[in-house]
Design a protein around this nucleic acid. Structure first.
Lengths: 243, 243
DNA sequence: AAGTGGTCTAGACCACGAC
DNA sequence: TCGTGGTCTAGACCACTTA
């Protein structure tokens, strides 16, 4: 069943380079070997090296200077979320300097509200799988996360579900669906009763709400996320970089 | 002085394709011509077409399906911010369905605070150029934006500055500097006196604060932004797409 | 002048989906 | 089986920075 997916050459090169940046072989602010040197070292074409470097540049890890060379961004360590990692809360907690843990609060079936039905293109009242989880940063609750998935696409019994998994994994393992893209709405909201109870934030203070819709390649809505983020405790930062 | 920068073939192809998506020649949900057809039509190599399509895919405009074809994302119209694009408030207002206008409030010199000095790697008290602007959506004030730039990099007299320009343009025209990357912190904040006065939001309600640092390729901090965003009126939505 | 990244080409082969 | 996108190569030439 599980496909053996041999990693592409480009993916392997990317992992090598990311590793060298992470462990300081290529230190912040320093210049890394030229494209030709890298392509020779790895025994791949320069074009392949370039596709990898282009990706790292968009992620803000490296800065490329024509006629000069490629440098490791000296602010790598401050960078915690490129847009692509915006939904990986464990990583965000980690790069803020804490140890992330996930506590599964509820895994249950419920009927969809009108709003949810509209967003998921189903009928109001249709069954949903609802997952509620709490992310901790070193024993301090920081993110309250709820995800809902139409029960109709669920291929496994509900008690089989592992509450520690990323929604991407849940869709892939239990629904045989892959996320092609996601749209996130970012809002600021006042702390309500639920958030007060779970995150321990005072009523009247604020949190960030990240409302996410996940879609398949066929443009079918697969899942929704409603995430409340304690932005006093954790920094949510995005990097935007060019060429 | 202004360099004549002939656009690269890839950039021209990208503009053509973006145009066709925008004007509906390639309609949402429809399939677009294959890579070979496009490369033949434009008289460029397939590799060039592919670099452009890869960029559009990362931005969520198109969805690629191996063995099938490339489709326009049927939700293109909901998308207002992509990977690798700086916040463009006018565009966000536009895609929310309003006509954007910018009102320049103040353009002045001021002394830097300690916080600003730290972020800009200058001395506290050093002179800054400070721009405060208000973005309207159809005559409704929605974003209060402040930008500061060290006066030391300013190459033109302050009264020459066009208060309608994007910070990117201001840095490029008046400071001969280009932004290589930006780091944005996103927080939710309670409405204070200033925001209350400018955006007309009730005290005790919330707004989004987008705090941006802009850097050059040399990792030099070029400017700071502090933006207060009325997220009850405008939707801030981000797209992320995978391969 | 030498070396770097930036652009582009022409062509090969593979993996996958639809027919 | 055929056409699509996915991967990769080898090589050419350009634009730019640095010395």
């Amino acid at each position: 069943m599980g496909l053996i997916h041999t990693k592409s050459i480009a993916e392997q090169v990317e992992e090598l380079l990311r590793g060298r940046i992470r462990d300081g072989t290529y230190a912040p602010g320093n210049r890394i070997p030229s494209e030709s040197e890298l392509s020779e070292e790895f025994g791949v074409s320069r074009a392949t090296v370039r596709t990898v470097l282009a990706k790292l540049a968009v992620n803000g890890l490296i800065l490329r200077k024509q006629g000069d060379g490629t440098y490791v961004n000296s602010r790598v360590r401050e960078i915690n979320a490129h847009l692509g990692n915006l939904w990986d809360f464990s990583r965000i907690i980690e790069t803020n300097g804490y140890k992330p843990t996930i506590k599964s609060i509820t895994i249950e079936q419920k009927a969809s509200t009108e709003k949810e039905a509209l967003a998921l293109a189903i009928e109001p009242g249709d069954k949903l799988l609802s997952l509620t989880r709490l992310f901790y940063a070193d024993d301090h609750p920081v993110i309250l996360a709820n995800n809902v998935v139409p029960a109709s696409i669920l291929q496994e019994p509900i008690d089989q579900i592992d509450g520690q998994l990323h929604i991407r994994e849940i869709l892939s393992r239990y629904c045989h669906q892959n996320i092609a893209f996601a749209i996130t709405d970012i809002c600021s909201v006042l702390v309500d009763e639920d958030v007060h109870n779970m995150l321990g934030k005072k009523l009247g203070s604020t949190v960030l709400a990240l409302q996410v819709s996940f879609y398949s390649k066929q443009n079918v809505p697969l899942a929704l996320g409603a995430n409340y983020f304690d932005d006093e405790f954790l920094r949510l930062s995005l990097v935007q970089a060019w060429s």
